[in-house]
Amino acid sequence: MSFVSELKKFAIKGNVVDMAVGIIIGAAFGKIVASFVGDILMPPLGLALGGVNFTDLAFILKEANGDAPAVAIAWGKFVQTVIDFIIVAMAVFVGVKAMNSLKKKEEAAPTAPSAPPKQEVLLEEIRDLLKK
């Protein structure tokens, strides 16, 4: 099998396409969550904490000197990123939980009884004849 045909076979598999769609949607969802946290959630939280903007919070290790920028540990950005992650994790958890509950409902749905296999019917007839 040539490299190109193997690559084509791999790329056409449903799982690869599903994964690619998931990654693209996940990236877009991440942007939505980042906007939600940065533009909607954090401003009221910062206001409640005395007008603090979390992205500006940092420990300055070395002040700016001339053209050299300041060296700082931007812990406020880290806090905002952690909040982003928690919201994404909760949203994914809720989504997966909903999908699992739908899957359980499908599995629990009763199926129509099917006719027993011919061998089983034949064995039952033999058993009934032997009883007589």
Score class of each variant (00 low, 15 high):
125 E>C: 14
10 F>E: 09
119 Q>F: 08
127 R>N: 15
13 K>F: 04
52 V>H: 01
31 K>W: 07
31 K>Y: 12
2 S>N: 09
89 A>G: 06
101 S>D: 06
59 F>W: 15
43 P>L: 01
20 A>R: 00
15 N>L: 06
54 F>R: 00
124 E>Y: 08
123 L>M: 10
132 K>H: 08
6 E>P: 01
19 M>L: 10
129 L>S: 13
118 K>L: 14
37 V>T: 10
18 D>P: 09
42 M>P: 04
77 K>I: 02
79 V>K: 00
27 A>D: 06
75 W>G: 00
65 N>S: 08
29 F>G: 14
48 A>E: 09
60 I>P: 00
37 V>F: 01
46 G>F: 04
5 S>K: 09
82 V>I: 12
122 L>Q: 07
11 A>T: 11
107 E>C: 06
67 D>V: 08
104 K>G: 03
45 L>M: 15
86 I>R: 05
8 K>G: 03
90 M>C: 09
79 V>F: 07
47 L>T: 10
63 E>L: 07
66 G>F: 09
52 V>L: 07
64 A>C: 04
39 D>Y: 10
23 I>V: 14
50 G>T: 01
41 L>H: 13
125 E>Q: 11
128 D>C: 03
20 A>P: 00
86 I>V: 12
24 I>Y: 05
11 A>V: 13
48 A>I: 09
49 L>C: 15
16 V>H: 14
39 D>G: 10
77 K>D: 02
41 L>Q: 00
96 V>I: 12
45 L>G: 06
57 L>W: 00
48 A>W: 07
21 V>S: 06
77 K>P: 00
106 E>I: 14
12 I>G: 03
48 A>H: 11
123 L>I: 04
33 V>I: 15
20 A>L: 06
17 V>D: 01
15 N>Y: 02
50 G>D: 14
50 G>Y: 05
59 F>R: 06
96 V>A: 09
75 W>V: 03
50 G>A: 07
69 P>Y: 04
4 V>A: 11
82 V>Y: 05
112 A>G: 14
115 A>V: 12
30 G>K: 10
33 V>W: 05
59 F>E: 07
107 E>K: 10
104 K>M: 08
102 L>V: 05
29 F>I: 05
111 T>K: 05
72 A>R: 05
46 G>R: 02
120 E>P: 08
59 F>D: 05
1 M>A: 11
122 L>A: 09
